[in-house]
């Protein structure tokens, strides 16, 4: 049963990651390879807030979200003038630099040794969120919260503006909208919600090291999002469930563990190629990336 709960917790974490990335990739058509960097920044700031500052759950979460939001502005300000491949490249650069700092700045991040023994966050001074059932509840609440916020955002006037911008920037400029500020807001919202996933991951696993937040993880998050689909809530949710369940299904099929990990990656790669060729909007999305 714990195994089953574990899978649901992982799905919840990826739902947070993909639903918030969708705002950037699906609603604004900014393909980012730097999502794992935000995930990592969120996780490391969560740990900082929980251990060094010794804060309870909600303040720690807010610290992590704010800090990640601030870092996203750093990327937004440097990359927003760039288009298509150049934009992808600058997010890739951000990913590499962030990873390099997490990995090499040993006096602060403990580098490749990682940070073990992350304490269970305290909620309202009474509950300790530790053990699998409380985590199941906590992560489900957080993923539902994220889904709710982004559902509201996508269907709000703000969401309609984003849709208009991704279809035709020029038209929006002529209507007197400030598209740079719109994009910066998207960046900040999307990445500060990714910090929630970082918080969930750090407190659930109770150990973080930079290898969980490398370029491969960025590609994985993006794959989950693209497989599921862009532009609505259903797409990212379907994608997260798919990429977390697929390895488990492969395990039941009886694939030996030595090749299972590679086989899984090969299947993701194949699905990406096939989807891009025949169904660029993904399994359940409603937007084709441009």
């Amino acid at each position: 049963m714990n195994y089953f709960f574990h899978i649901i917790i992982m799905i919840n974490i990826y739902i947070v990651l993909t639903v918030s990335s969708n705002l950037l990739v699906g609603m604004t058509n900014l393909l980012s390879l730097g999502q794992a960097a935000f995930y990592g920044i969120g996780a490391y700031f969560s740990v900082l807030a929980l251990t060094t500052l010794n804060l309870p759950l909600i303040p720690s979460l807010i610290v992590a979200m704010l800090a990640t939001g601030v870092f996203s502005l750093l990327l937004a300000l440097t990359s927003l003038r760039l288009k298509n491949d150049y934009f992808v490249l600058s997010t890739l650069g951000f990913q590499i630099i962030t990873f390099s700092v997490l990995y090499n700045w040993i006096s602060v991040t403990k580098g490749p040794y990682g940070i073990p023994g992350i304490p269970a966050p305290k909620l309202l001074g009474i509950f300790q969120v530790s053990g699998i059932i409380p985590f199941l509840i906590f992560s489900t609440v957080m993923s539902l919260f994220t889904i709710f916020i982004f559902y509201y955002l996508i269907n709000s006037p703000f969401g309609r503006l984003l849709k208009a911008m991704r279809e035709d920037e020029l038209a929006l400029i002529t209507l007197g909208k400030n598209i740079t500020s719109l994009k910066i807001q998207t960046f900040a919202i999307s990445s500060s919600f990714i910090a929630i996933a970082g918080f969930l991951y750090a407190t659930y696993v109770t150990y973080i090291d930079p290898s969980s937040f490398n370029l491969d993880e960025s590609i994985f998050i993006l794959s989950a999002l693209l497989i599921g689909g862009l532009g609505n809530i259903k797409g990212p949710v379907v994608g997260s469930i798919f990429v977390i369940l697929l390895p488990e299904i492969l395990r039941f099929v009886g694939l030996p563990d030595s090749i299972a990990a590679n086989m899984r990656q090969i299947i993701y790669g194949l699905i990406l190629i096939i989807l891009m060729r025949f169904k660029p909007e993904g399994l359940a999305g409603n937007y084709r990336i441009k």
Partner: peptide
């Protein structure tokens, strides 16, 4: 579009 090609390339 160029992003579609880039994603296929990642695949």
């Amino acid at each position: 579009s160029s992003n579609v090609v880039t994603i296929s390339s990642i695949g």
